[in-house]
Amino acid sequence: MEKVVDPKIYFRTAIALLLLLAATWMIAYINLGLFNLIAALAIAITKAIVIALFFMHIKGSSRLLHLAAIAGVMWLLILISLTLSDFLTRGWTQ
């Protein structure tokens, strides 16, 4: 039989995720200018990492699975950053 995770870890993960949801919701009602976007993205990325680590068991899995999980994100970052390098530097945004 495979090893299983202590149920406490799942409950803590869920509570952390719900607290992060509450945080992102509340921050939206405070005007912080550009920081609103930065905070929302930072919280979303944190939630994604927490889900991947504890619910999807990236924590404790092999290096090969870590690589496969990171690969998709890396290609997405290339897609977005190269496109933005064009849009942010050539005066498309009037």
Binding site: A28, N36, A40, L41, A48, A52, F55
Partner: peptide
Amino acid sequence: WHFVDIVWCFLFPLLYLVGHR
């Protein structure tokens, strides 16, 4: 299932909480 959850974690702030409300 967890992946679908992660996608929503990005959709919610990006679509519903653009800027400040």
